[in-house]
Amino acid sequence: MRELTYNEAALEAIAEEMRRDPKIFYMSTDALPPLLKEFGPQRIRATPITEAALTGMAIGAAGCGFRPIVDWRQVTFCFVAMDQIVNQAAKIHYMFGGQVNFPILYRAAVGGGGLVAAQHSQSPYSMFMNVAGLKMFLPSTPHDMKGLLKTAIRDNNPVISFESSRLMARKGPVPEDDYTIPFGVADIKREGDDVTVVALAWLVHEALAAAEELAKEGVSVEIVDPRTLVPLDTETIRNSVQKTGRLVIADEAGPTAGFSAEVAALVTEDAATFAALKAPVKRVCALQVPIPYSPVLENHVFPDRGRITAGIREVLRGRRSEAA
């Protein structure tokens, strides 16, 4: 199969959808050259650097029958539009009694690795998971990117596409045909029996590397990639943990009230899954600090394959107390 980068897969998905549906248009503070060339400046709109306006305008255009895409570029730039995201886009369908649909795609690059310091290295998806009325996903491969983006563009709700900065240039096989990946369906990126690792985006690849090394020692690691954050495929995660009895959660965001905390809670509050646990759940996350600039500091803050390996060893050693 031909290979595309993660970024090329995104552009292909958008271009295919824009050819299919003339109601789709794109707003971004920089027009993307390949899209601009094909679709022209009316549908690929270069805008002032006014994310609050763009984010809100998408809501109005969507309510009038269009299917806007707003590219925030980096997630940090959407914080000036929090009213439009949290108070307006997330709530408007519900608050108005479901009168009309608001099909909107917001795109945002997340994650670190670029040595661009605190404001440009964020992974704040759990802030948005906490807001009812937004769907969101975070793909780990070019294949998943294309299929999930196409689903997002066809969805009749506001959807945020979180896209890993570290993966933009990473290549992978991408079918040329028109395929979609449904929301709320996790992908088991590697099957195993001894421990489950739930990982997102770049950390899926780090977890795969860790699993490869541990396999040499006879440790069988299962890697679950949720892909969509809202809706989250709780069933696949619980089933995997019921099979392995051990869980490591790997996330490039900090742990506090985060995605990793949510997964830990979903696993432990379910009686059958809780009963299957052979060891305490382990979270392998970024340190709870703003992301620093210097490589020495940044490397210290982010989890990687080494920390995932250490986390897996810890849960393999761990035992539930047998005390009565």
């Binding site: 306006a53 809501i59 109005g60």
Partner: peptide
């Protein structure tokens, strides 16, 4: 000021 950007999107529409 919550509605201004939304209706501007309706103007664009």
């Amino acid at each position: 000021a919550g509605g201004i950007s939304i209706i501007t999107g309706a103007g664009l529409a």
